[in-house]
Design a protein around this nucleic acid. Structure first.
Lengths: 228, 228
DNA sequence: TGCCTTGACATTGGATCCAATCGTGACAGA
DNA sequence: TCTGTCACGATTGGATCCAATGTCAAGGCA
Protein backbone atom coordinates (compact mmCIF):
# COMPACT_ATOMS: atom_id res chain seq x y z
CA UNK A 1 0.00 0.00 0.00
CA UNK A 2 2.67 2.49 0.99
CA UNK A 3 6.06 2.09 -0.68
CA UNK A 4 5.44 5.37 -2.42
CA UNK A 5 8.61 7.36 -2.58
CA UNK A 6 11.89 6.79 -4.33
CA UNK A 7 11.30 3.42 -5.93
CA UNK A 8 14.72 3.59 -7.53
CA UNK A 9 15.72 0.35 -5.85
CA UNK A 10 14.49 -1.33 -9.03
CA UNK A 11 12.98 -4.30 -7.29
CA UNK A 12 10.86 -6.65 -9.34
CA UNK A 13 10.09 -6.72 -13.03
CA UNK A 14 10.46 -3.38 -14.76
CA UNK A 15 7.20 -3.65 -16.71
CA UNK A 16 5.26 -4.15 -13.52
CA UNK A 17 6.94 -1.23 -11.85
CA UNK A 18 6.06 0.95 -14.80
CA UNK A 19 2.44 -0.22 -14.64
CA UNK A 20 2.29 0.58 -10.94
CA UNK A 21 3.90 3.98 -11.31
CA UNK A 22 1.69 5.02 -14.19
CA UNK A 23 -1.45 3.74 -12.55
CA UNK A 24 -0.65 5.68 -9.42
CA UNK A 25 0.15 8.83 -11.37
CA UNK A 26 -3.13 8.63 -13.25
CA UNK A 27 -5.18 7.92 -10.15
CA UNK A 28 -3.71 10.67 -8.01
CA UNK A 29 -4.24 13.26 -10.71
CA UNK A 30 -0.68 13.84 -11.85
CA UNK A 31 -1.72 12.52 -15.26
CA UNK A 32 -5.21 13.88 -15.91
CA UNK A 33 -7.30 12.96 -18.96
CA UNK A 34 -5.70 14.19 -22.14
CA UNK A 35 -2.15 13.63 -20.93
CA UNK A 36 -0.06 12.15 -23.66
CA UNK A 37 2.19 9.28 -22.68
CA UNK A 38 5.39 9.30 -24.70
CA UNK A 39 7.32 6.07 -24.46
CA UNK A 40 10.78 7.59 -24.46
CA UNK A 41 9.83 10.25 -21.92
CA UNK A 42 8.40 7.68 -19.53
CA UNK A 43 11.33 5.36 -20.05
CA UNK A 44 13.77 8.10 -19.11
CA UNK A 45 11.64 9.16 -16.17
CA UNK A 46 11.43 5.64 -14.77
CA UNK A 47 14.96 4.62 -15.61
CA UNK A 48 14.25 1.82 -18.08
CA UNK A 49 14.18 1.34 -21.81
CA UNK A 50 11.09 1.72 -23.95
CA UNK A 51 10.28 -1.98 -24.02
CA UNK A 52 8.88 -2.27 -20.49
CA UNK A 53 7.04 1.00 -21.03
CA UNK A 54 5.35 -0.37 -24.12
CA UNK A 55 4.30 -3.50 -22.29
CA UNK A 56 2.98 -1.41 -19.42
CA UNK A 57 0.96 0.73 -21.81
CA UNK A 58 -0.59 -2.39 -23.32
CA UNK A 59 -1.53 -3.59 -19.86
CA UNK A 60 -3.03 -0.27 -18.86
CA UNK A 61 -4.86 -0.05 -22.17
CA UNK A 62 -6.48 -3.41 -21.50
CA UNK A 63 -7.44 -2.07 -18.08
CA UNK A 64 -9.00 0.99 -19.68
CA UNK A 65 -6.75 3.42 -17.84
CA UNK A 66 -5.07 4.59 -21.03
CA UNK A 67 -6.03 4.59 -24.68
CA UNK A 68 -3.67 3.71 -27.48
CA UNK A 69 -3.80 3.94 -31.23
CA UNK A 70 -1.38 2.25 -33.58
CA UNK A 71 1.53 4.47 -34.56
CA UNK A 72 -0.12 7.38 -32.78
CA UNK A 73 0.72 6.76 -29.18
CA UNK A 74 -1.03 6.56 -25.84
CA UNK A 75 -2.83 9.04 -23.65
CA UNK A 76 -5.12 9.22 -20.65
CA UNK A 77 -8.66 9.10 -22.03
CA UNK A 78 -11.43 11.58 -21.46
CA UNK A 79 -14.74 10.09 -20.47
CA UNK A 80 -18.14 11.35 -21.46
CA UNK A 81 -20.92 11.94 -18.90
CA UNK A 82 -22.80 9.00 -20.41
CA UNK A 83 -19.81 6.73 -20.00
CA UNK A 84 -19.25 7.67 -16.38
CA UNK A 85 -22.95 7.26 -15.72
CA UNK A 86 -22.75 3.74 -17.09
CA UNK A 87 -19.65 2.99 -15.05
CA UNK A 88 -21.60 3.92 -11.94
CA UNK A 89 -24.53 1.75 -13.03
CA UNK A 90 -22.13 -1.14 -13.39
CA UNK A 91 -20.88 -0.46 -9.88
CA UNK A 92 -24.45 -0.48 -8.59
CA UNK A 93 -24.86 -3.99 -9.87
CA UNK A 94 -21.44 -5.47 -9.19
CA UNK A 95 -20.47 -4.05 -5.82
CA UNK A 96 -23.42 -5.55 -3.93
CA UNK A 97 -22.36 -8.88 -5.38
CA UNK A 98 -18.78 -8.33 -4.27
CA UNK A 99 -20.06 -7.42 -0.84
CA UNK A 100 -22.17 -10.55 -0.67
CA UNK A 101 -19.18 -12.71 -1.56
CA UNK A 102 -16.88 -10.82 0.76
CA UNK A 103 -18.95 -10.46 3.90
CA UNK A 104 -18.68 -14.06 5.16
CA UNK A 105 -14.91 -13.76 4.91
CA UNK A 106 -14.61 -10.54 6.88
CA UNK A 107 -13.43 -10.95 10.46
CA UNK A 108 -14.63 -8.78 13.35
CA UNK A 109 -11.22 -7.13 13.19
CA UNK A 110 -11.83 -6.29 9.55
CA UNK A 111 -15.14 -4.71 10.49
CA UNK A 112 -13.45 -2.73 13.25
CA UNK A 113 -11.01 -1.40 10.74
CA UNK A 114 -13.90 -0.25 8.55
CA UNK A 115 -15.26 1.62 11.54
CA UNK A 116 -11.92 3.31 12.13
CA UNK A 117 -11.77 4.42 8.52
CA UNK A 118 -15.25 5.88 8.75
CA UNK A 119 -14.29 7.73 11.93
CA UNK A 120 -11.47 9.38 10.04
CA UNK A 121 -13.84 10.22 7.23
CA UNK A 122 -16.53 11.63 9.53
CA UNK A 123 -14.96 15.03 10.04
CA UNK A 124 -14.38 16.27 6.53
CA UNK A 125 -10.65 15.70 6.08
CA UNK A 126 -10.23 17.58 2.81
CA UNK A 127 -10.63 16.37 -0.74
CA UNK A 128 -7.49 14.28 -1.16
CA UNK A 129 -7.71 12.56 2.21
CA UNK A 130 -11.40 11.90 1.70
CA UNK A 131 -10.79 10.32 -1.69
CA UNK A 132 -8.08 8.12 -0.26
CA UNK A 133 -10.02 7.05 2.82
CA UNK A 134 -13.32 6.57 1.00
CA UNK A 135 -11.64 4.40 -1.60
CA UNK A 136 -9.87 2.42 1.08
CA UNK A 137 -13.09 1.95 3.03
CA UNK A 138 -15.07 0.67 0.08
CA UNK A 139 -12.36 -1.59 -1.23
CA UNK A 140 -11.86 -2.95 2.29
CA UNK A 141 -15.51 -4.00 2.24
CA UNK A 142 -14.66 -6.22 -0.72
CA UNK A 143 -11.39 -7.48 0.72
CA UNK A 144 -13.00 -10.83 1.45
CA UNK A 145 -13.77 -11.27 -2.23
CA UNK A 146 -10.50 -12.54 -3.61
CA UNK A 147 -11.84 -13.95 -6.87
CA UNK A 148 -9.98 -12.01 -9.48
CA UNK A 149 -12.57 -11.30 -12.16
CA UNK A 150 -15.01 -9.66 -9.76
CA UNK A 151 -12.49 -7.94 -7.51
CA UNK A 152 -10.52 -6.80 -10.52
CA UNK A 153 -13.54 -5.47 -12.36
CA UNK A 154 -14.71 -3.51 -9.33
CA UNK A 155 -11.26 -2.06 -8.92
CA UNK A 156 -11.20 -1.01 -12.56
CA UNK A 157 -14.54 0.69 -12.24
CA UNK A 158 -13.19 2.68 -9.33
CA UNK A 159 -10.03 3.54 -11.21
CA UNK A 160 -11.87 4.61 -14.33
CA UNK A 161 -13.98 7.10 -12.43
CA UNK A 162 -11.41 8.34 -9.94
CA UNK A 163 -10.64 11.54 -11.81
CA UNK A 164 -14.27 12.64 -11.98
CA UNK A 165 -14.84 11.74 -8.36
CA UNK A 166 -11.98 14.08 -7.49
CA UNK A 167 -13.35 16.91 -9.59
CA UNK A 168 -16.80 16.46 -8.14
CA UNK A 169 -15.57 16.42 -4.55
CA UNK A 170 -13.43 19.45 -5.22
CA UNK A 171 -16.35 21.54 -6.34
CA UNK A 172 -18.97 20.14 -4.01
CA UNK A 173 -16.75 20.26 -0.95
CA UNK A 174 -18.02 19.23 2.50
CA UNK A 175 -21.48 20.62 1.83
CA UNK A 176 -23.34 17.30 1.68
CA UNK A 177 -20.75 15.35 3.58
CA UNK A 178 -23.26 14.41 6.27
CA UNK A 179 -25.09 12.27 3.69
CA UNK A 180 -21.99 10.21 3.08
CA UNK A 181 -21.53 9.76 6.81
CA UNK A 182 -25.11 8.61 7.30
CA UNK A 183 -24.86 6.17 4.41
CA UNK A 184 -21.55 4.78 5.59
CA UNK A 185 -22.87 4.40 9.14
CA UNK A 186 -25.89 2.46 7.92
CA UNK A 187 -23.75 0.33 5.64
CA UNK A 188 -21.31 -0.56 8.38
CA UNK A 189 -24.17 -1.36 10.72
CA UNK A 190 -25.64 -3.77 8.21
CA UNK A 191 -22.23 -5.36 7.76
CA UNK A 192 -21.88 -5.82 11.52
CA UNK A 193 -25.30 -7.43 11.51
CA UNK A 194 -23.95 -9.70 8.77
CA UNK A 195 -26.91 -8.84 6.58
CA UNK A 196 -25.77 -8.86 2.95
CA UNK A 197 -29.21 -8.00 1.59
CA UNK A 198 -29.57 -4.88 3.66
CA UNK A 199 -25.95 -3.93 3.14
CA UNK A 200 -26.19 -4.52 -0.59
CA UNK A 201 -29.23 -2.34 -0.89
CA UNK A 202 -27.61 0.47 1.07
CA UNK A 203 -24.52 0.16 -1.04
CA UNK A 204 -26.50 0.30 -4.25
CA UNK A 205 -28.31 3.38 -3.00
CA UNK A 206 -25.05 5.00 -1.97
CA UNK A 207 -23.59 4.55 -5.44
CA UNK A 208 -26.82 5.53 -7.14
CA UNK A 209 -27.09 8.77 -5.19
CA UNK A 210 -23.52 9.64 -6.11
CA UNK A 211 -24.29 8.95 -9.74
CA UNK A 212 -27.34 11.17 -9.69
CA UNK A 213 -25.55 14.03 -7.97
CA UNK A 214 -22.66 13.72 -10.39
CA UNK A 215 -25.11 13.86 -13.29
CA UNK A 216 -26.24 17.26 -12.03
CA UNK A 217 -22.74 18.66 -12.42
CA UNK A 218 -21.88 18.31 -16.10
CA UNK A 219 -19.18 20.95 -15.67
CA UNK A 220 -17.06 18.17 -14.20
CA UNK A 221 -16.69 16.90 -17.74
CA UNK A 222 -15.55 20.19 -19.28
CA UNK A 223 -12.22 19.77 -20.95
CA UNK A 224 -10.11 22.47 -19.43
CA UNK A 225 -6.86 23.67 -20.90
CA UNK A 226 -5.23 20.67 -22.55
CA UNK A 227 -2.05 19.59 -20.83
CA UNK A 228 1.11 18.53 -22.58
CA UNK B 1 -15.52 -12.22 -37.72
CA UNK B 2 -14.31 -14.46 -40.51
CA UNK B 3 -10.78 -13.83 -41.80
CA UNK B 4 -9.76 -17.05 -40.16
CA UNK B 5 -7.37 -18.83 -42.43
CA UNK B 6 -3.91 -17.93 -43.63
CA UNK B 7 -3.52 -14.49 -42.11
CA UNK B 8 -0.04 -14.24 -43.54
CA UNK B 9 -0.89 -11.02 -45.30
CA UNK B 10 0.52 -9.33 -42.20
CA UNK B 11 -1.96 -6.48 -42.22
CA UNK B 12 -2.05 -4.18 -39.22
CA UNK B 13 0.09 -4.09 -36.14
CA UNK B 14 1.77 -7.37 -35.30
CA UNK B 15 0.93 -7.21 -31.59
CA UNK B 16 -2.75 -6.87 -32.37
CA UNK B 17 -2.66 -9.72 -34.81
CA UNK B 18 -1.03 -11.90 -32.19
CA UNK B 19 -3.68 -10.91 -29.65
CA UNK B 20 -6.44 -11.78 -32.11
CA UNK B 21 -4.89 -15.10 -33.11
CA UNK B 22 -4.27 -16.18 -29.54
CA UNK B 23 -7.69 -15.09 -28.37
CA UNK B 24 -9.30 -17.04 -31.16
CA UNK B 25 -7.19 -20.10 -30.46
CA UNK B 26 -8.10 -20.03 -26.78
CA UNK B 27 -11.79 -19.49 -27.43
CA UNK B 28 -12.19 -22.22 -30.02
CA UNK B 29 -10.46 -24.76 -27.84
CA UNK B 30 -7.16 -25.17 -29.65
CA UNK B 31 -5.49 -23.80 -26.52
CA UNK B 32 -7.34 -25.32 -23.57
CA UNK B 33 -6.63 -24.45 -19.93
CA UNK B 34 -3.16 -25.54 -18.92
CA UNK B 35 -1.62 -24.84 -22.31
CA UNK B 36 1.72 -23.21 -21.91
CA UNK B 37 2.42 -20.24 -24.14
CA UNK B 38 6.09 -20.08 -25.07
CA UNK B 39 7.10 -16.78 -26.56
CA UNK B 40 9.55 -18.13 -29.10
CA UNK B 41 7.19 -20.85 -30.22
CA UNK B 42 4.34 -18.41 -30.77
CA UNK B 43 6.62 -15.94 -32.48
CA UNK B 44 7.76 -18.57 -34.98
CA UNK B 45 4.21 -19.79 -35.48
CA UNK B 46 2.88 -16.32 -36.20
CA UNK B 47 5.86 -15.10 -38.16
CA UNK B 48 7.04 -12.32 -35.87
CA UNK B 49 9.66 -11.75 -33.25
CA UNK B 50 9.10 -12.24 -29.54
CA UNK B 51 8.43 -8.58 -28.83
CA UNK B 52 4.89 -8.44 -30.24
CA UNK B 53 4.18 -11.77 -28.61
CA UNK B 54 5.18 -10.43 -25.22
CA UNK B 55 2.98 -7.40 -25.65
CA UNK B 56 0.10 -9.60 -26.73
CA UNK B 57 0.55 -11.78 -23.66
CA UNK B 58 0.41 -8.72 -21.43
CA UNK B 59 -2.80 -7.63 -23.10
CA UNK B 60 -4.39 -11.04 -22.79
CA UNK B 61 -3.24 -11.28 -19.19
CA UNK B 62 -5.01 -8.02 -18.39
CA UNK B 63 -8.07 -9.48 -20.09
CA UNK B 64 -7.84 -12.58 -17.93
CA UNK B 65 -7.51 -14.92 -20.89
CA UNK B 66 -3.98 -15.94 -19.93
CA UNK B 67 -2.00 -15.91 -16.72
CA UNK B 68 1.61 -14.87 -16.47
CA UNK B 69 4.24 -15.04 -13.80
CA UNK B 70 7.53 -13.21 -13.89
CA UNK B 71 10.34 -15.29 -15.35
CA UNK B 72 8.03 -18.28 -15.46
CA UNK B 73 5.99 -17.68 -18.53
CA UNK B 74 2.36 -17.62 -19.57
CA UNK B 75 -0.35 -20.21 -19.83
CA UNK B 76 -4.09 -20.57 -20.25
CA UNK B 77 -5.51 -20.59 -16.74
CA UNK B 78 -7.72 -23.23 -15.18
CA UNK B 79 -10.79 -21.91 -13.45
CA UNK B 80 -12.36 -23.31 -10.32
CA UNK B 81 -16.07 -24.10 -10.10
CA UNK B 82 -16.44 -21.23 -7.63
CA UNK B 83 -14.78 -18.83 -10.04
CA UNK B 84 -16.97 -19.83 -12.95
CA UNK B 85 -20.02 -19.60 -10.72
CA UNK B 86 -19.06 -16.05 -9.85
CA UNK B 87 -18.45 -15.18 -13.49
CA UNK B 88 -21.99 -16.29 -14.24
CA UNK B 89 -23.33 -14.22 -11.33
CA UNK B 90 -21.55 -11.22 -12.74
CA UNK B 91 -23.20 -11.91 -16.08
CA UNK B 92 -26.59 -12.11 -14.41
CA UNK B 93 -26.12 -8.60 -13.13
CA UNK B 94 -24.35 -6.96 -16.04
CA UNK B 95 -26.05 -8.40 -19.11
CA UNK B 96 -29.51 -7.10 -18.25
CA UNK B 97 -27.90 -3.69 -17.94
CA UNK B 98 -26.21 -4.07 -21.30
CA UNK B 99 -29.52 -5.13 -22.77
CA UNK B 100 -31.26 -2.10 -21.29
CA UNK B 101 -28.67 0.21 -22.80
CA UNK B 102 -28.65 -1.60 -26.10
CA UNK B 103 -32.34 -2.14 -26.79
CA UNK B 104 -33.24 1.44 -27.76
CA UNK B 105 -30.45 1.34 -30.33
CA UNK B 106 -31.50 -1.90 -31.99
CA UNK B 107 -33.30 -1.51 -35.30
CA UNK B 108 -36.11 -3.81 -36.47
CA UNK B 109 -33.57 -5.27 -38.87
CA UNK B 110 -31.31 -6.07 -35.93
CA UNK B 111 -34.18 -7.85 -34.21
CA UNK B 112 -34.92 -9.78 -37.39
CA UNK B 113 -31.34 -10.93 -37.44
CA UNK B 114 -31.70 -12.18 -33.86
CA UNK B 115 -34.71 -14.18 -35.01
CA UNK B 116 -32.74 -15.72 -37.85
CA UNK B 117 -29.98 -16.74 -35.49
CA UNK B 118 -32.46 -18.37 -33.16
CA UNK B 119 -34.01 -20.25 -36.08
CA UNK B 120 -30.61 -21.69 -36.88
CA UNK B 121 -30.18 -22.59 -33.23
CA UNK B 122 -33.62 -24.19 -32.92
CA UNK B 123 -32.72 -27.52 -34.47
CA UNK B 124 -29.74 -28.66 -32.47
CA UNK B 125 -26.88 -27.90 -34.86
CA UNK B 126 -24.13 -29.66 -32.93
CA UNK B 127 -21.88 -28.39 -30.18
CA UNK B 128 -19.54 -26.14 -32.11
CA UNK B 129 -22.20 -24.51 -34.24
CA UNK B 130 -24.41 -24.03 -31.21
CA UNK B 131 -21.62 -22.35 -29.28
CA UNK B 132 -20.90 -20.04 -32.17
CA UNK B 133 -24.52 -19.14 -32.87
CA UNK B 134 -25.49 -18.78 -29.21
CA UNK B 135 -22.58 -16.48 -28.59
CA UNK B 136 -23.38 -14.48 -31.68
CA UNK B 137 -27.03 -14.21 -30.69
CA UNK B 138 -26.35 -12.96 -27.18
CA UNK B 139 -23.66 -10.54 -28.19
CA UNK B 140 -25.91 -9.23 -30.95
CA UNK B 141 -28.44 -8.37 -28.26
CA UNK B 142 -25.83 -6.05 -26.78
CA UNK B 143 -24.68 -4.65 -30.11
CA UNK B 144 -26.48 -1.42 -29.38
CA UNK B 145 -24.37 -0.93 -26.28
CA UNK B 146 -21.19 0.53 -27.65
CA UNK B 147 -19.84 1.95 -24.41
CA UNK B 148 -16.56 0.17 -24.00
CA UNK B 149 -16.38 -0.63 -20.30
CA UNK B 150 -19.70 -2.44 -20.22
CA UNK B 151 -19.52 -4.07 -23.64
CA UNK B 152 -15.92 -5.04 -23.00
CA UNK B 153 -16.60 -6.49 -19.58
CA UNK B 154 -19.50 -8.57 -20.86
CA UNK B 155 -17.34 -9.86 -23.67
CA UNK B 156 -14.61 -10.82 -21.22
CA UNK B 157 -17.07 -12.70 -19.06
CA UNK B 158 -18.15 -14.68 -22.09
CA UNK B 159 -14.58 -15.33 -23.09
CA UNK B 160 -13.51 -16.43 -19.64
CA UNK B 161 -16.24 -19.08 -19.47
CA UNK B 162 -16.20 -20.24 -23.09
CA UNK B 163 -14.15 -23.35 -22.41
CA UNK B 164 -16.48 -24.62 -19.70
CA UNK B 165 -19.54 -23.83 -21.76
CA UNK B 166 -18.10 -26.03 -24.48
CA UNK B 167 -17.36 -28.90 -22.11
CA UNK B 168 -20.82 -28.66 -20.59
CA UNK B 169 -22.56 -28.63 -23.96
CA UNK B 170 -20.45 -31.54 -25.12
CA UNK B 171 -21.54 -33.75 -22.28
CA UNK B 172 -25.10 -32.53 -21.95
CA UNK B 173 -25.77 -32.59 -25.68
CA UNK B 174 -29.19 -31.72 -27.13
CA UNK B 175 -31.01 -33.26 -24.20
CA UNK B 176 -32.36 -30.04 -22.69
CA UNK B 177 -32.05 -27.99 -25.82
CA UNK B 178 -35.77 -27.23 -25.83
CA UNK B 179 -35.28 -25.14 -22.69
CA UNK B 180 -32.79 -22.91 -24.47
CA UNK B 181 -35.19 -22.51 -27.37
CA UNK B 182 -38.07 -21.56 -25.10
CA UNK B 183 -35.95 -19.06 -23.23
CA UNK B 184 -34.58 -17.53 -26.41
CA UNK B 185 -38.07 -17.28 -27.88
CA UNK B 186 -39.38 -15.47 -24.83
CA UNK B 187 -36.36 -13.20 -24.74
CA UNK B 188 -36.70 -12.24 -28.39
CA UNK B 189 -40.40 -11.65 -27.92
CA UNK B 190 -39.72 -9.26 -25.06
CA UNK B 191 -37.13 -7.49 -27.18
CA UNK B 192 -39.62 -7.08 -30.02
CA UNK B 193 -42.06 -5.66 -27.51
CA UNK B 194 -39.26 -3.26 -26.54
CA UNK B 195 -39.67 -4.22 -22.93
CA UNK B 196 -36.27 -4.06 -21.23
CA UNK B 197 -37.63 -5.05 -17.82
CA UNK B 198 -39.20 -8.24 -19.06
CA UNK B 199 -36.28 -9.01 -21.33
CA UNK B 200 -33.79 -8.34 -18.57
CA UNK B 201 -35.56 -10.67 -16.20
CA UNK B 202 -35.72 -13.43 -18.80
CA UNK B 203 -32.06 -12.92 -19.57
CA UNK B 204 -31.11 -13.09 -15.92
CA UNK B 205 -33.10 -16.27 -15.55
CA UNK B 206 -31.52 -17.76 -18.64
CA UNK B 207 -28.05 -17.16 -17.30
CA UNK B 208 -28.98 -18.26 -13.81
CA UNK B 209 -30.40 -21.56 -15.02
CA UNK B 210 -27.24 -22.22 -16.99
CA UNK B 211 -25.18 -21.49 -13.92
CA UNK B 212 -27.21 -23.86 -11.78
CA UNK B 213 -27.08 -26.66 -14.34
CA UNK B 214 -23.35 -26.16 -14.73
CA UNK B 215 -22.94 -26.35 -10.97
CA UNK B 216 -24.45 -29.83 -11.09
CA UNK B 217 -21.69 -31.05 -13.38
CA UNK B 218 -18.46 -30.60 -11.45
CA UNK B 219 -16.77 -33.10 -13.75
CA UNK B 220 -16.52 -30.26 -16.25
CA UNK B 221 -13.78 -28.89 -14.04
CA UNK B 222 -11.74 -32.06 -13.87
CA UNK B 223 -8.27 -31.47 -15.14
CA UNK B 224 -7.83 -34.10 -17.77
CA UNK B 225 -4.52 -35.14 -19.20
CA UNK B 226 -2.31 -32.06 -19.18
CA UNK B 227 -1.46 -30.89 -22.67
CA UNK B 228 1.93 -29.68 -23.80
C1' DT C 1 -4.65 34.00 -51.03
C1' DG C 2 -5.62 29.31 -50.50
C1' DC C 3 -4.55 24.53 -51.06
C1' DC C 4 -1.79 20.78 -52.04
C1' DT C 5 2.77 18.64 -52.04
C1' DT C 6 6.94 17.46 -49.96
C1' DG C 7 10.39 16.85 -46.89
C1' DA C 8 12.41 16.73 -42.20
C1' DC C 9 11.58 15.55 -37.53
C1' DA C 10 9.30 13.20 -33.78
C1' DT C 11 7.47 9.07 -32.32
C1' DT C 12 6.05 4.43 -32.43
C1' DG C 13 6.61 -0.64 -34.00
C1' DG C 14 9.69 -4.63 -34.59
C1' DA C 15 14.00 -7.44 -34.62
C1' DT C 16 18.14 -8.85 -32.73
C1' DC C 17 21.28 -9.32 -29.11
C1' DC C 18 22.59 -9.82 -24.27
C1' DA C 19 21.47 -10.56 -19.28
C1' DA C 20 18.90 -12.72 -15.66
C1' DT C 21 16.14 -16.33 -13.93
C1' DC C 22 14.12 -20.83 -13.64
C1' DG C 23 13.76 -25.82 -14.13
C1' DT C 24 15.99 -30.15 -14.44
C1' DG C 25 18.93 -33.80 -14.23
C1' DA C 26 23.45 -35.60 -12.98
C1' DC C 27 26.35 -36.42 -9.27
C1' DA C 28 28.37 -36.68 -4.66
C1' DG C 29 27.75 -37.57 0.05
C1' DA C 30 25.33 -39.32 4.06
C1' DT D 1 18.33 -45.15 -1.31
C1' DC D 2 17.54 -40.63 -0.35
C1' DT D 3 18.84 -35.85 -0.34
C1' DG D 4 21.20 -31.72 -1.29
C1' DT D 5 24.17 -29.24 -4.58
C1' DC D 6 25.68 -27.70 -8.83
C1' DA D 7 25.81 -26.84 -13.55
C1' DC D 8 23.67 -26.67 -17.94
C1' DG D 9 19.93 -25.82 -21.09
C1' DA D 10 15.56 -23.57 -21.77
C1' DT D 11 13.06 -19.57 -21.32
C1' DT D 12 11.89 -15.00 -20.11
C1' DG D 13 13.17 -9.90 -19.33
C1' DG D 14 15.53 -5.74 -21.05
C1' DA D 15 18.38 -2.71 -24.11
C1' DT D 16 19.77 -1.10 -28.40
C1' DC D 17 19.29 -0.55 -33.17
C1' DC D 18 16.66 -0.05 -37.40
C1' DA D 19 12.26 0.46 -40.02
C1' DA D 20 7.77 2.43 -40.59
C1' DT D 21 4.42 5.70 -39.72
C1' DG D 22 2.53 10.08 -38.47
C1' DT D 23 2.95 15.14 -37.72
C1' DC D 24 3.78 19.51 -39.12
C1' DA D 25 5.61 23.33 -41.29
C1' DA D 26 7.63 25.45 -45.37
C1' DG D 27 7.23 26.21 -50.09
C1' DG D 28 5.35 25.75 -54.83
C1' DC D 29 1.42 26.12 -57.84
C1' DA D 30 -3.29 27.33 -59.28
Amino acid sequence: MSGDGAAELAVGVASDRVVAELREAILDGRLPPGSRLRQEELAALLGTSRVPVREALRTLAAEGLVETEANRGAWVPWRSPAEVDLLYRMRERLEPLALEVSLPNLSPADLDRLGELQERIRTWPGVEAFLRLDRELHLAVYAGCTTEPLAGTVLRLWNATQHYRRLYMTLSGPRRHWVVNAEHDLLLDALRRRDPVDAGRLLEGHIRRTRCELARHPEVFDRGVPRS
